[in-house]
Computed example of a mutant assay.
Amino acid sequence: MCKNVRVHLEIVRLADSQIPAAAATLAHAFHDDPLMVYTIPDPDDRTRLLPDVYSRMIRFGVLTGEVYVTAGAVEGVALWLPPNVKWTRENIEASGMHETPNIIGNDAYQRYREVVSREWQARERDMTDPCWYLFLLGVEPSRQRQGLGGALMRPILERADTDQIACYLETENERNVAFYRRHGFEVIVNGEEAGTSGVRFWTFRRMPKL
């Protein structure tokens, strides 16, 4: 008989050698995400291009923030940027993120920016105080709904409570709304459409626990 067993999930800081595996995990997790579908409409192109895109985002996280993964096989990734993160040209170039337009094509990059720029505007408007920013959270599709997402967020959520600092994130996927609410986030922007893209987005804030 099959029994439900609560498995302990060990979460560790990403090692540089794990960047390719972490990028592959994020590519799988976001393959059908509305923003990625709008950015790169062809599914085969997404399969081919997204690992390269996410590897650069992860490197930026390693340079400027903190990246957490599941111990052993990389089945989930959380990339956090700290309060007052430095989006400098040096950090962007060192991570390789400046090469994204060349990787996915300028038209795709402009579609991506169309949505992300609206999210940036919302963040600057609604989060004037320093906060931890959850830049990316992704779990292998076969391992979703098993507690990995919450475990991956826990190290920074606990630190934010200790330091009394808020946390912030965005999602373009409505099915994530209930998940983030369960982990103490409140919706700030509720399904706002990003320009003419048809992509909706939600923004969330989590105030520290006393």
Score class of each variant (00 low, 15 high):
Leu14Val: 07
Ser17Pro: 00
Ile19Lys: 01
Pro20Glu: 08
Pro20Gln: 11
Ala21Arg: 12
Ala21Thr: 09
Ala22Thr: 06
Ala22Lys: 00
Thr25Glu: 05
Thr25Gln: 01
Thr25Leu: 10
Leu26Thr: 13
Leu26Glu: 02
Ala29His: 04
His31Arg: 14
His31Tyr: 07
His31Pro: 06
Asp32Phe: 02
Asp33Arg: 05
Pro34Ala: 07
Pro34Ile: 01
Met36Phe: 08
Met36Gln: 15
Val37His: 08
Tyr38Gln: 11
Tyr38Thr: 01
Thr39Ala: 02
Thr39Tyr: 03
Thr39Asp: 02
Ile40Gly: 01
Ile40Pro: 00
Pro43Leu: 01
Asp45Thr: 08
Arg48Trp: 04
Leu50Asn: 05
Asp52Asn: 02
Asp52Ser: 14
Asp52Thr: 08
Val53Gly: 12
Tyr54Gly: 00
Arg56Met: 06
Met57Cys: 06
Ile58Ser: 01
Arg59Cys: 01
Arg59Leu: 02
Phe60Arg: 06
Thr64Gln: 03
Gly65Cys: 05
Gly65Leu: 01
Glu66Ile: 06
Val69Met: 00
Val69Cys: 00
Ala71Lys: 15
Gly72Met: 00
Ala73Gln: 13
Ala73Cys: 12
Val74Glu: 07
Val74Trp: 00
Val74Asn: 02
Glu75Gly: 14
Glu75His: 14
Ala78Lys: 02
Ala78Asp: 14
Ala78Leu: 00
Trp80Lys: 07
Trp80Val: 04
Leu81Asn: 02
Pro82Trp: 00
Pro82Val: 08
Asn84Cys: 03
Asn84Glu: 15
Val85Gly: 10
Lys86Ser: 14
Lys86Ala: 15
Trp87Leu: 14
Trp87Met: 13
Glu93Ala: 14
Glu93Leu: 12
Ala94Cys: 08
Ala94Gln: 14
Ala94Trp: 00
Ser95Leu: 10
Met97Lys: 13
Met97Tyr: 06
His98Ser: 15
His98Trp: 04
His98Cys: 05
Glu99Met: 11
Thr100His: 11
Thr100Leu: 15
Pro101His: 10
Pro101Gly: 06
Pro101Cys: 09
Asn102Val: 05
Asn102Thr: 10
Ile103His: 04
Ile104Thr: 13
Ile104Glu: 11
